[in-house]
């Protein structure tokens, strides 16, 4: 990584085991501030585990994860806004009440921005969360995640379950609702082609090991390959970035 670029997130020889199964294995990575970073890899490669470690809702078995110099524990939520891949909500709330709940919890929650995102996502504030379609629940999740003014935003499969038109709108919305002067976005997704145009950096993980980290612009300009083509090449080469 170029010197002088602020490092926002650091994985320092992190191993994370679920019982005897290692989800991440001696994983070291340094992510810059103010970028959109795509975390890609096959199912079960460790992408979601990496995001959970940054969000502090799980702890490393070995090693350490820091966010903006602070060790990531559960209380790192003051710096990290995390969108889980799980389809779980407080279903007793309406859309408007969900936004109010988040606004009450987080001092960094920007209510005006949340309202803008709700309008952009065409979400009815009076509708109960339990009555929303899966796609609309996904949009609500995105709205409350992006409305926070935190240095790090994590989105685990935010496009899953959404139709292609909505996915396109959301990808465009990410650019409008993130302040790249102050915020870093890390996103995992299988819809790589759809987010490729907005990514600055891509990180490829396989079996809990970091394979490669590349600047997306360099891939396009110098290697003249798409991220998917690059992934195939790296998988074939089995190249590990250390």
């Amino acid at each position: 990584m170029k010197s002088g670029v602020k490092r926002m997130i650091e994985f320092n020889h992190v191993t994370k085991k679920y019982r005897s199964q290692a989800a991440l294995n001696d994983f070291s990575l340094s992510l810059p501030a103010g970028k959109i970073i795509g975390l890609v890899g096959e199912n079960g490669s460790g992408k979601s585990t990496a995001l959970k470690l940054i969000s502090g809702i799980i702890s490393p078995t070995k090693g350490s994860v820091t966010v903006d110099g602070e060790v990531a524990t559960r209380r790192i939520s003051s710096k990290v806004s995390y969108l889980s891949e799980l389809d779980a909500y407080y279903t007793f709330y309406t859309v408007g009440e969900t936004v109010s709940y988040y606004a009450s919890l987080y001092s960094d929650f920007n209510q005006r921005k949340a309202e803008e995102i709700l309008d952009y996502m065409k979400l009815d504030r009076r509708k109960k969360v339990k009555d929303l379609s899966k796609g609309n629940r996904g949009r609500l999740k995105i709205a409350v995640t992006l409305a926070r003014e935190v240095p790090v935003i994590l989105m685990d499969e935010p496009l899953s379950g959404l139709d292609p038109i909505v996915r396109d709108a959301i990808v465009k919305g990410l650019l409008s609702f993130i302040d790249f002067e102050k915020q870093t976005l890390i996103i995992t997704t299988h819809e790589i082609k759809e987010i490729e145009p907005i990514l600055d950096t891509v990180v490829l993980i396989k079996d809990g090991v970091l394979l490669k980290m590349e600047d997306v612009e360099e891939l396009r300009m110098e290697q003249n390959v798409s991220i998917v083509e690059w992934m195939k090449q790296v998988y074939q080469d089995g190249g590990i970035d250390k």
Partner: peptide, 12 residues
Amino acid sequence: RTLHLWLQTPLP
């Protein structure tokens, strides 16, 4: 069922 939401709150 929504443990990740609960654990993500900033409260001790």
